[in-house]
Write a protein that binds this DNA or RNA. Structure first.
Length: 503
RNA sequence: CGGGGCGUAGCUCAGCUUGGUAGAGCGCUCGGUUUGGGUCCGAGAGGUCGUCGGUUCGAAUCCGGCCGCCCCGACCA
């Protein structure tokens, strides 16, 4: 690709309404442009990077025996009414009405659509297990998009769905995804941790999240260096000391959804003064869709933390409703827990029969009995992964792409006196199957060098009068910066062998 | 949805306090210059000052509504 033909230009300064470094670089280097809050266009370089990431994902999902499909962005509301999520999820679900007055939703995820497919196609245990995946657009009308692609409203996700006859089958597919996701992140060049997680709006019985540790993250993790315990704060447990000083009460209105009806109950939570309330845990105990703080209303339910001693007031229910904090004691090994901030780049859920049960996706087993299909769902935020890669792989000059996900592996710069040689090398590299970004623009050297640093392709080739006098082409590795001069005659071999060893 | 901030040329911003002919740098066009780290000189194009309304002889500037964007919180892949 010739840079003179690229639609976008690089930006000398970051747009003012941006704060996160990785996002600023994606904008400045011309990978993405913002269209609306949480909505982005992917320009050529961004799209190329996404394609590299997606190719790795397809390889790993195919290796699991997955079959690629594609489900729609627009769904009939009836599917979401059947699962109950039409009622459970509030404004985050995009709803629209077609010209005939039929209610539709925008895909927030695809459990319903896949369960609907399963109930049409799967009849017998002989057809199981199954694994289907797709890479598709999601719309979640997030109340607060932020940090560019880290938290957007429209985003791309790799999501896969497993169908099994029993729990043992689900366990196997869940574990297979757990392992495959680590391989995907390793190949993309993003370090991640897997932690125990809340099932959130997906429902089900067990979930893990894959976390990239970074201060720009919005999730808080609790980590134990003693035994390796790792959990999202939403579900993290900790050892509560025997003697606790004082009690506090916190009052909430819990919104419950029963079928199509919404109900509210006023709940007073009671816990030690030293603890913080964990609203995720509280919500689960109450089976509430939402909690909102309130004050001084007649309490319907008294909920007491299981670590509290010496509470003499009313008790309707006892449960763990306290949030683990930095320095709390690990339940497993007694060591102190530490906290870290992270971005959730993927999650995997054991759905069980959450969707197959409500939507009637059943099969007949060998005993001729109808059984709900046992499901799992698994997702990686592709565009969020792009954001995390930009955040992780950068320096003062710009982005520093790993070879495997770089939009192009090679950046060829033609400077004065090197134009003809550069043009020839460009053609030779293309013929050798090397994708090249070729800076053929009529710009000064400084502009080209700065843009090359900003875009951050792995290998920079500079051809100029000076380099030719020195013996050929200057080759610089973006990560690390070491330079060499390669003869023009053997440059293509030099580049292909470097790339082969770097992959 | 609560709190805060912002909206002036493609980008970054000044001008608003104290109302009176709309500015700078970068970018863009043309000419020259320079050519290995975002050259330099000259000429030029480009803006209904987010939008609607109000106050006023007169509004980018004061007042109000609305829209949009960002940050914090609630929330979230």
């Amino acid at each position: 690709m010739k840079m003179s033909r690229l639609l976008n230009e690089t930006l000398r300064e970051a747009p003012s309404a941006t704060e996160v470094a990785g996002h600023q670089l994606l904008l400045r280097a011309g990978f993405v442009r913002q269209v609306a809050a949480g909505v982005f266009s992917y320009l050529h370089l961004g799209q190329r990077t996404l394609q590299k990431i997606e190719a790795i994902m397809r390889q790993e999902m195919d290796a699991l025996g997955g079959q690629e499909i594609k489900m729609p962005l627009v769904h009939p509301a009836a599917l979401w009414q059947a699962s109950g999520r039409w009622y459970e999820i509030d404004a985050e679900l995009g709803r629209l009405v077609d010209r005939n007055g039929r209610s539709l939703t925008l895909a927030l995820s695809h459990e319903e659509t896949l369960a609907d497919l399963a109930r049409q196609e799967i009849h017998s245990y002989r057809q199981l297990p199954q694994l289907a995946y797709h890479i598709q657009t999601k719309w979640r009308d997030d109340p607060r998009p932020r940090a560019g692609l880290v938290r957007s409203r429209e985003f791309t996700m790799l999501d896969s769905y497993s169908l099994d006859a029993d729990e043992a089958g689900l366990d196997g597919q869940y574990q297979a995804h757990y392992d495959a996701y680590f391989r995907i992140f390793a190949r993309c060049g993003l370090p991640v941790l897997a932690v125990q997680a809340d099932v959130g709006i997906m429902g089900g019985t067990l979930a893990h999240e894959f976390m990239y540790l970074t201060p720009i993250g919005e999730d808080t993790l609790l980590l134990c260096d003693g035994c390796g315990y790792r959990a999202n704060r939403q579900v993290a447990t900790f050892h509560k000391p025997e003697s606790q000083q004082g009690t506090q009460t916190v009052q909430f209105v819990a919104e419950l959804v029963v079928g199509e009806e919404k109900r509210e109950r006023v709940v007073t939570a009671v816990l030690s003064q030293n603890f913080q309330i964990n609203e995720t845990k509280l919500g689960h105990v109450l089976n509430a869709q939402r909690l909102r703080p309130t004050a001084e209303q007649a309490t319907d339910l008294w909920l007491v933390d299981d670590g509290l001693t010496g509470w003499s007031g009313q008790v309707d229910k006892v449960a763990d409703i306290a949030a683990a904090q930095e320095g709390d004691t690990c339940t497993n090994c007694g060591q102190p827990l530490r906290t870290a901030r992270a971005v959730e780049v993927a999650n995997i859920f054991k759905l069980g029969t959450r969707y197959s049960g409500t939507m009637g996706a059943t099969f007949v087993n060998a005993q001729d009995e109808a059984r709900p299909i046992v499901m799992g769902s698994y997702g990686i935020g592709v565009t969020r992964l792009l954001a995390c890669l930009a955040e992780h792989h950068r320096d003062e000059a710009g982005l520093v792409w790993p070879v495997r996900v770089a939009p192009y592996p090679v950046h060829l710069l033609a400077l004065r006196g090197g134009e003809e040689t550069a043009e020839s090398l460009y053609q030779q590299l293309l013929q050798a199957g090397v994708d090249v970004l070729y800076d053929d623009r009529d710009e000064r050297p400084g502009v080209k060098f700065n843009d090359a640093g900003l875009i951050g392709l792995p290998l920079r080739l500079t051809v100029s009068q000076r380099s030719l006098v020195m013996g050929g082409v200057e080759v610089q590795v973006r990560a690390g910066g070491e330079t060499a001069v390669a003869p023009v005659a053997t440059l293509v071999t030099y580049v292909t062998s470097w790339l082969a060893s770097a992959r």
